[in-house]
Simulated assay, not measured.
Amino acid sequence: MPIRYDITHTTVYRYREPVGFGEHRVMFRPRDSHDLRVLATDLDVSPEAQVRMIQDPHSNSVALVQPRGAADTLKIVCSFTIEHAPRDHLQLPLSPSAEHFPFAYSVEDRFDLEQYLRPHHDDPKGLLTAWARQFIRTDGPTGTRDVLMQMNQHIRSTLAYLSRDEEGTQTPLQTLALQSGSCRDFALLMMEAARRLGVATRFVSGYLYDPSLDDEGAASGDTVTGAGATHAWLQAYLPGAGWVPFDPTNNLYGDHQLIRVGVARDPSHAAPISGSWFGPAGAYLGMTAEVRVRRRAGFG
Rank of each mutant, 00 (worst) to 15 (best):
P86Q: 08
L117E: 08
N251Y: 08
K125F: 12
R164F: 11
I273H: 07
F203V: 02
P67E: 04
S220E: 06
G262L: 11
P239I: 08
E48K: 15
D44C: 15
G262I: 08
Q115S: 14
T171C: 04
L39M: 12
S268Q: 15
M191H: 09
E48G: 15
L148A: 06
V38F: 04
R14C: 04
M190A: 01
V26A: 07
M1Q: 13
T138H: 10
R133A: 07
R37L: 14
L188A: 03
E166D: 15
D44P: 14
S182I: 02
L252M: 12
G221S: 00
W233Q: 08
Q153W: 11
A297E: 12
A130Y: 10
E192H: 07
V263H: 09
A193I: 00
S274V: 03
D139H: 02
A219G: 09
P239S: 08
E23H: 04
A70D: 09
A283I: 03
A187Q: 00
L74Y: 02
E192P: 02
V51G: 02
F111V: 15
P172T: 07
A177T: 11
K125P: 11
Q235K: 13
N250C: 00
E192S: 03
E192G: 03
A283F: 04
S61I: 13
L178S: 07
Y284Q: 08
Q235W: 06
G226F: 01
R294W: 08
F21P: 02
Q134Y: 02
G20N: 02
V204H: 03
A236T: 03
G181W: 05
Y5A: 09
A289Q: 12
A227S: 08
I76T: 11
V261Q: 07
I3S: 14
A70K: 11
